[in-house]
């Protein structure tokens, strides 16, 4: 009985390893896609996330809305084809591109070098500062003041990287990672955390709670820039996107979007 169990374990384990190998060695179709391909196909498929307000969310009619969504629609208009949205979650953004689920990702996709090893980024179309928020009654001016405190943040965001580093350099900072921004803010309001890292639009949320006015922005961590993600073997599409973003920046469209959704101006957007 005991050895039979072991044998089935080994069999199942072997099946798992085998299927992994199968995945790894399977031939992979190559399809470099140009702007012309998209136009002749008659639609552009863009990956979005509707749980990341004010960039991706749902409006009063429960349709996708927000900075990213409106920007994505403008991409479709400029290409002259309808946009088909596919919904992704944060960890699904890179796989969605790599597995051809979408032509591009427009979903608060911060431009970082490690990510660029897997996908290519356009020049930034938006950006925001990561900041530390806390109750007014708490005196916080820098990382050193966070020692001995519980600091909440959203997993995998820019704040996560920066504050995790800060916690290493300043022992005694306790980091709590939440899965989404609303949970993080709820933890702040419930008093489960003493301070939090968030975007510079973060007080939109806190203002709604009864104790909303008790919170304030303490200090700025860093500014992050969002780019459109495309597959790495797609220089043609990337070149077009860069040109397109350049024109929207010059004619003030991006700034308008920022005021409309973020209630604050965009930081200066550098190019690369």
């Amino acid at each position: 009985m005991f050895t039979a169990r072991l044998r089935t374990m080994i069999a199942a384990g072997a099946a798992m390893v085998l299927s992994t190998l199968l995945l790894a060695t399977a031939p992979q179709p190559a399809a470099a896609e140009t702007v012309d391909d998209i136009i002749s196909r008659g639609k552009v498929v863009i990956a979005i996330d509707t749980t990341t307000p004010p960039y991706g969310m749902i409006d009063e009619q429960f349709q996708p809305a927000g900075f990213d969504i409106e920007f994505a629609k403008k991409i479709g208009e400029a290409l002259g084809v309808p946009v088909e949205f596919v919904t992704v979650t944060s960890p699904g953004r890179i796989p969605a591109l790599l597995t051809n689920r979408a032509d591009m990702v427009v979903s608060i996709f911060s431009i970082t070098a490690p990510r660029a090893l897997q996908v290519a980024f356009s020049i930034p179309y938006a950006g925001q500062s990561a900041v530390v928020l806390a109750p007014k009654s708490t005196a916080i001016k820098s990382h050193a003041d966070l020692v001995g405190k519980k600091v909440g943040l959203t997993r995998g965001t820019g704040e996560d990287g920066l504050l995790t580093e800060a916690a290493k350099a300043n022992p005694g900072i306790e980091i709590l990672r939440f899965d989404d921004y609303a949970s993080l803010l709820q933890a702040m309001v419930s008093g489960q955390i003493d301070a939090m890292g968030g975007g510079d639009y973060g007080d939109i949320y806190l203002k709604k709670s009864a104790k909303g006015d008790d919170f304030e922005m303490k200090y700025i961590l860093k500014t992050f820039y969002f780019g459109v993600g495309v597959r790495r073997d797609n220089p043609d599409l990337l070149r077009w996107l860069n040109t397109f973003i350049f024109t929207l920046k010059q004619d003030g469209t991006l700034e308008q979007l920022s005021q409309k959704y973020r209630n604050t101006p965009l930081p200066p957007l550098p190019v690369f």
Binding site: L23, G92, I94, P114, Q118, G156, G161, R177, S183
Partner: peptide
Amino acid sequence: SAIAAEELTAIANNMVMQTFRSF
């Protein structure tokens, strides 16, 4: 991990965010 408790999946997701190698 929804209430910020760390365990294997949470650490895996941290790793996905650091390495971007979800597969």
